[in-house]
Simulated assay, not measured.
Amino acid sequence: MDSYTSTPSNDVDARDKPIMEFHPELWPVLERNRPVLNLDLFWPIKCERVDNAEEQRTEGDQKGTFPPRDLRPLVSFRNLHVLHLGGMRKSYQPVIWEACFVNANLTKLTLEMALEPEISDDFKAQYKKIDSTWAYDGSKPSYPEPTEYMYLGLEGSGELHPDFGSGEYLDRTAMRQAQAAVKDGVGVAVKRHLPIQSLTLSNFVVDAGPFFRWFDPERLREVIFTGTCWDAGFYLPNEMRRGVRAEGPQKPKPLVARVIKPGEAKVVSLSQGKLVKREDWDGENHLPDPEPGIGDASGGRDLKTKVSQISGVGKQATNE
């Protein structure tokens, strides 16, 4: 059975195990009541159902872009608690926000773009790259709600307007249009706000607009930026600024080395694959010779293997 027709894991705890090489033909084998859905959309597919060149340009291509229309079945899920979409090479926000509105129990949303956004030279001085030095100070009062004149998107597509650059933009207009589409066509009761508690974005341009209109101050608890995101005027409403944690990529933790103390390491002597002696290492650089009589008639001098095995500090070392 090939990778496109094999049944993916339905393990509710497999949050870090995306369904790789996801293909539209896999939708029928995914249970609609599953609470966790983790898809990697990066892998190439053939758009065999595309009839003409115009549809091919708008819905996908032969170079590995997952067609947005083939993500529509996402809206048929109703019990998602965790949604993770990675490897996206174009915007799918119109469909994604519809799926968020129809899943009232959705608490964790992770969206990862495959490519970093590009900011126009005219705006690089105004915006700030969100890296390990970026910090959001939630103790200061926020500015008033952003106006429509501060919108940086492209008519709800999820893409950054070409005047500002290129790439993915957290699009409040896409959220508004998605809510309207759910009310008109899906037949599900829709709440005022998105249900999300934890939002993780990778390679997005982000401003303040969506957090004033579409995220619930009673539910949202964290906004995490990874990859290369851009702060294009990000701030939170006053009612969120103390209860919501916003953080950028973390600095890699340095490796810490320390001196091994006597008693923490064991010296193990083997003969013909069998353990013949084990003792504490005394802290010297050399390994002790085996005692005479261990191994063979020559007093154990021709033992084939000496292995120094370092055990961890604490319970494991104590048990030894």
Results as ranks from 00 to 15, higher is better:
D2F: 07
Y4R: 07
T7S: 13
P8Q: 12
S9I: 02
S9Q: 06
D13N: 09
A14V: 08
R15L: 12
F22T: 08
L30Y: 01
R32W: 14
N33A: 13
L37V: 01
D40K: 00
L41F: 02
C47P: 05
V50C: 15
A53Q: 12
E54L: 14
E55R: 11
R57K: 13
E59Q: 15
Q62I: 15
L71A: 10
P73F: 02
S76K: 12
K90W: 14
C100K: 02
A104G: 02
L109V: 03
E112A: 02
A114S: 01
L115D: 07
I119P: 03
K124S: 02
A125I: 09
Q126A: 11
T133K: 05
G138S: 08
P141C: 03
P141Q: 03
T147D: 10
Y149W: 09
Y151A: 09
G153V: 14
G158D: 09
L160S: 11
P162S: 07
G165F: 06
Y169H: 06
A174S: 15
A181L: 06
D184E: 14
G185K: 15
V188Y: 09
H193K: 15
I196G: 01
I196S: 08
S202K: 00
F204E: 11
G209D: 04
G209C: 03
P210W: 05
P217S: 00
E222C: 04
V223A: 02
I224E: 07
T228G: 03
F234T: 01
L236E: 03
M240D: 01
R242K: 05
G243S: 06
V244C: 10
A246Y: 07
K251P: 10
P252V: 10
A257I: 11
A265R: 15
V267S: 07
S269F: 11
L275Y: 12
D282H: 04
D282V: 07
E284Y: 07
L287G: 10
I294N: 08
G295D: 05
S298I: 12
S298D: 15
G299V: 11
D302M: 13
D302G: 05
D302C: 08
L303I: 15
L303Y: 09
K306L: 01
Q309H: 05
G314E: 10
K315P: 05
T318F: 12
E320R: 13
